[in-house]
């Protein structure tokens, strides 16, 4: 008599799946924790140095105005956020001409920062020119040397900003941003990275 076929071969293999529930529990706890500390809005610092400190940091002389010996030592670049537009002045000039001009407001009433940025680039090329050397200064915060270019004008990296009293801080910050760099072919070209805030004249 033949034996009855064994039933063992029909036994299904036991499940080899991982028990993921503990891992899931851990992740469910971790996600709210990380969400609470995540910096979804990235912050940065806009460092502002008062004029005397900035002049020292930029390697410029703290005094303003042109040189008394006939040779111009300071550019004295200033932008005024006026009610009618952006007034740009160099060498402390206030008469319309190559060293004092105004960029009118855009039709929507906002400042034309694009044109202003282009004009600053023009000033940088035409008036300031290429660097004549480099200088370095110890950064007290980092303890490292900050290397910066030196131009024929002592304040060749500086621009003063003034604004009417009711100008919002965001507009002033936008102006400071525009003064720092110009993007050419995707590359940042330095304009006047040292921005000083001054009283409206």
């Amino acid at each position: 008599m033949a034996f009855k076929p064994s039933l063992k071969k029909k036994r299904e293999p036991e499940s080899t799946e991982l028990n993921l529930l503990p891992v899931m529990n851990l992740i469910i706890v971790l996600i709210p924790l990380l969400l609470s500390v995540a910096k979804l809005t990235e912050m940065a610092l806009l460092e502002y140095l008062p004029p005397a400190e900035a002049a020292e940091g930029a390697g410029a002389a703290p005094e303003e105005g042109g040189g008394s010996g006939g040779e111009q030592t300071n550019l004295s670049l200033l932008v005024n956020l006026a009610e009618t537009g952006l007034q740009v002045s160099m060498f402390n000039k206030v008469d319309p001409g190559p060293y004092f001009f105004e960029i009118p407001l855009k039709p929507d009433g906002s400042y034309d920062f694009e044109t202003f940025n282009a004009r600053l680039w023009d000033i940088k090329q035409r008036e300031v020119g290429a660097p004549i050397g480099v200088d370095s200064l110890v950064n007290e915060k980092t303890g490292r040397y900050d290397v910066f270019p030196v131009y024929k004008y002592k304040d060749g990296r500086e621009i003063s900003i003034t604004a009417v009293g009711k100008t919002p801080f965001q507009v002033v910050v936008n102006a400071m941003d525009v003064c720092r760099y110009r993007s050419i072919d995707g590359e940042k070209q330095e304009l006047f990275p040292v921005t000083l805030l001054k009283q409206f004249q």
């Binding site: 809005t41 912050m43 610092l45 806009l46 460092e47 502002y48 140095l49 008062p50 400190e53 910050v173």
Partner: peptide, 14 residues
Amino acid sequence: YATLDFVVLKATTS
């Protein structure tokens, strides 16, 4: 207080 640091939000566009 000679060093003033203003906190700003990072702008994404350049």
